[in-house]
Simulated scan of single mutants.
Amino acid sequence: MRDPTTTTEVDVHLVNAPDTVPELSCYTTNLVAYLETGEPGVRSRMAHAVRLAVRLDSGPGNLVFSQHSRIDGDAALGYRGAADWGRAVADLQTELTRSGRVLAVADTFHLSWSPAHGIAHSPHWLLLLGRRDGRWLVADHFRALTPLGEQEPFLGWLDDATVERALTPYGPWPPEIAHRDRYALGTAVEPVHADRFRWLARTTGEDPPADPGAWTRGLPETLERVSTVLTDDDTAAARYGDDLWAASRHYTYRLEVLAANGEICAEAAAAAAVSWGELPKVVRFAAESAARGRPRAGLLRRTFDDLQRIHEKTTTEPVSEV
Rank of each mutant, 00 (worst) to 15 (best):
D195H: 08
E221T: 07
T203L: 06
G156C: 11
P208W: 06
Y183S: 05
E152M: 12
E221L: 11
F154Y: 15
T228V: 10
L145V: 14
D159F: 00
T228H: 11
G134N: 03
S227G: 14
E206R: 14
T228K: 04
E221V: 06
A184T: 07
H121T: 00
A139D: 15
L230H: 03
R165K: 14
F142C: 09
D195F: 00
G218P: 10
P153A: 06
P169D: 09
D133C: 08
P123N: 06
L128S: 01
S227E: 11
T162P: 02
T203W: 02
T162G: 10
L145N: 12
R202Y: 01
A139N: 10
H193C: 15
W173K: 10
A214N: 06
G218Y: 00
L127A: 07
D160W: 01
H124C: 12
G156R: 12
P212I: 08
A120D: 08
R131Y: 12
T228S: 10
R217G: 07
V189M: 01
G134A: 05
E150I: 10
P123G: 09
R135E: 14
G156A: 12
T187I: 10
T187D: 10
T162M: 05
Y170V: 13
E206S: 13
H179C: 03
E152N: 05
A166S: 08
P220D: 07
H193P: 01
Q151I: 13
R217K: 11
R143V: 13
W173M: 04
A139E: 15
L200R: 11
R198I: 03
G156L: 09
G218Q: 02
E164H: 03
A201C: 07
G130V: 09
R131C: 15
G171L: 12
P209A: 11
R225D: 07
E152I: 07
G149H: 05
W215I: 07
A201T: 09
A194N: 00
L167I: 05
F142W: 14
A178S: 15
G186N: 05
A166N: 01
F197E: 00
V226S: 07
P220S: 06
R182D: 06
H121A: 02
G130I: 06
A201E: 10
E224C: 04
D211A: 02
E150A: 03
A120W: 13
L129E: 15
A201L: 08
E224F: 07
L167V: 01
W199I: 09
D133G: 05
P220Y: 02
D181L: 15
L167G: 05
L155D: 00
Q151G: 12
T162L: 01
H121E: 06
T204N: 02
Y183M: 01
E150F: 14
V229W: 00
R202K: 10
W173P: 03
A120K: 11
E152A: 11
P175V: 10
D181A: 07
G218N: 03
T203Y: 04
